[in-house]
Design a protein around this nucleic acid. Structure first.
Length: 540
RNA sequence: GGCGCAUUAGUCUAGUUGGCCUAGGACGCCGCCCUCUCAAGGCGGAGAUCGUGGGUUCAAAUCCCACAUGCGCUACCA
């Protein structure tokens, strides 16, 4: 049996096992195999609670808060959700979590949408797309939260708290200083109803707090398994602020419930929030979704990614000339693997193979070098035309050519094969091809290659030869240059350098003959003449 | 402080039911080859006592316990 068929068999076996687990999970004995379900069945199995209600459709979401640009951590979360939705034919919902009005901005929202589109993460429901659960940003859903909050209050599952933020803060500090737990002490819980009513009538602001029930709450995480939290360690968290706006925990639960989200896949910084949310789902008499918490992405120093670690905004990668597919490939591999050997994985393969069962649980360190390498791989796989077109905006930005300049595009088309494997990001092309679009001044360090008896002679002789050529294509040019070198008894690697500097202005350039061909005889001759002049002057 | 999560080479990771692991692949690094420069490519190499200490077992990276370290949460931020 060859390797291929062995691999195939292994795949088949895996698939089969998955199938079995799925069957196991959706069967009626769900409750008796809780752990097996949480870890084994992965995302394919909707949470048992939803399952009981017969709701099987997969609905995933990405819910960024527009307090800044989309960073790579968020992008990865979005990608995983998108991949899962696409793989299993589910819906991918984009929801803007802007309950923190003071920190949210319209620009941030637009930028996030733009980055999502660039990465190719299209959403089935959300801003600009619409959907059955409109609106898809939290500021437009205030009444829904209020309604949920009211019902909790009426059912005695939440209560008014008249403590002022400053008071709470002071008490917390004191508690910590004295070594006590800084948890809210529930003092407002015991205010008699008449009193509460009176204070409310007086117009005293209050926050609504959730009354955390006794007992334990188990989070069944698809990546980590079951995690048990003691409710006694969860404080009566705030649902509604003094100004009536909802806090994150309330809003997220109400939205996920209303939008019928079946699987919540997010960063593991949310793990401690999860028991609170599960409690809320239950208080609202709603089946909770399945949860999966992704490990964070951290910098080389092990600290969470932030502006400190260089710019981690998705937009920055776009501007530098990273390709969306390379980003997606790289992001996917940050915490997930296809197998024990594959690194380059196209989007299609990702979609058909991605699953939470191969998501790891330790933090992933962002590695710029590897991203660069991967991007280079994707650039090398591009066709000439695609590459040339992709490069035009970068030329335009540097003022080398208009973006829609047909002639320039034509030139880039010929240059593409020469520079493709010399770039890591698209913007790398600019210094490589600049000499094709504008006159050059030799770099300081390169100037000495134009001076001196021998170098001048090379330039002179080569110029003569080039002039005599019938055809000015790269083969003829190569022949001429080699003949010149040989005639003068100089090694090619030495003889070509002055020409390179004369033509490109640099000691490093794309392949010489092809470059000269693209530049054209006239330009080449001019530049060699100029080099002779410049080098000759220096000599005297 | 409390609660939670994590811990395989510089990095991403494979390793899921203990033996096929003298720990596999990739990035990076080093060397050689190719070569008109730079790349790309080819070949080869160094680099991991699998956080530490115990235990279970004929056998542990894999199971159990403790400790250490890192990170997260502990907000009327999300």
């Amino acid at each position: 049996m060859d390797d291929d068929s062995r691999q195939h068999e292994a795949l088949l076996r895996n698939k089969l096992r998955l199938q079995v687990v799925i069957t196991l999970c959706v069967g009626s004995d769900i409750d008796r195999t809780p752990h097996r379900c949480a870890r084994g069945c992965d995302i394919i199995c909707p949470s048992p609670e939803l399952e009981k209600r017969g709701e099987r459709s997969l609905r995933l979401r990405f819910a960024p808060s527009p307090t800044g640009y989309l960073h790579v951590g968020g992008a990865r979360t979005a990608l995983y959700n998108w991949l899962l939705a696409r793989r299993f034919g589910g819906a991918f919902v984009l929801r803007i979590e802007d309950t923190d009005i003071s920190r949210s901005t319209e620009e941030a929202i637009e930028a996030i949408l733009e980055d999502m589109r660039w990465l190719g993460l299209d959403w089935d429901e959300g801003p600009e797309t619409g959907g059955d659960h409109w609106p898809y940003r939290q500021t437009g859903r205030a009444t829904l939260y209020l309604k949920a909050a009211r019902s909790l209050l009426e059912e005695g599952k939440a209560y008014r708290c008249f403590c002022l933020p400053e008071e709470l803060e002071a008490r917390r500090e004191k508690a910590v200083a004295e070594g006590r737990s800084p948890m809210y002490d529930r003092r407002c819980r015991s205010i008699p109803p008449e009193e509460t009513h009176r204070m409310e009538q007086e117009g005293r602001p209050f926050a609504l707090r959730f009354l955390v029930p006794e007992g334990e709450t188990v989070v069944r995480d698809a990546i980590r398994g079951d995690i048990t939290f003691n409710n006694a360690e969860i404080e009566d968290f705030v649902l509604l602020r003094g100004d009536g706006t909802p806090t994150y925990n309330l809003a997220v639960v109400v939205d996920d419930r209303d939008m019928e989200i079946s699987h919540v896949v997010r960063g593991d910084d949310h793990l401690p929030n999860t028991p609170k949310q599960i409690l809320l789902y239950r208080a609202l008499d709603t089946a909770e979704p399945a949860f999966a918490h992704l490990p964070m992405i951290v910098g080389q120093d092990g600290k969470p990614l932030s502006k400190r670690h260089g710019d981690v905004a998705v937009g920055r990668f776009r501007e530098e000339g990273f390709l969306p597919d390379a980003m997606v490939n790289f992001l996917a591999l940050l915490g997930w693997s296809l197998d024990d050997a594959t690194t380059i994985i196209d989007r299609r393969t990702l979609v058909t193979n991605f699953g939470l069962e191969r998501v790891g649980s330790k933090p992933a360190v962002w590695d710029d070098d590897k991203l660069l390498w991967m991007n280079a791989q994707y650039i090398m796989a591009m066709g000439d035309e695609d590459l040339a077109r992709a490069l035009m905006p970068f030329l335009a930005r540097e003022g080398l050519a208009e973006e829609d300049d047909e002639q320039a595009l034509e030139r880039m088309l010929s240059a593409a094969p020469l520079i493709r494997e010399r770039m890591k990001v698209l913007s790398d092309a600019v210094p490589l091809v600049a000499f094709l679009f504008r006159e050059v001044e030799a770099e300081e360090e390169a100037k000495e290659l134009l001076r001196g008896e021998e170098n001048q002679a090379i330039l002179r002789e080569t110029g003569k030869r080039l002039l005599e050529l019938d055809r000015f294509d790269s083969a003829s040019i190569e022949e001429a240059l080699r003949a010149t070198a040989e005639g003068m008894g100089i090694k090619p690697r030495k003889a070509f350098q002055p020409i390179r500097v004369a033509v490109s202005g640099s000691r490093v350039s794309p392949p010489l003959f092809e470059s000269m061909h693209i530049l054209g005889r006239e330009k080449c001759m001019q530049r060699i003449a100029r080099a002779l002049e410049a080098g000759g002057e220096q000599d005297r």
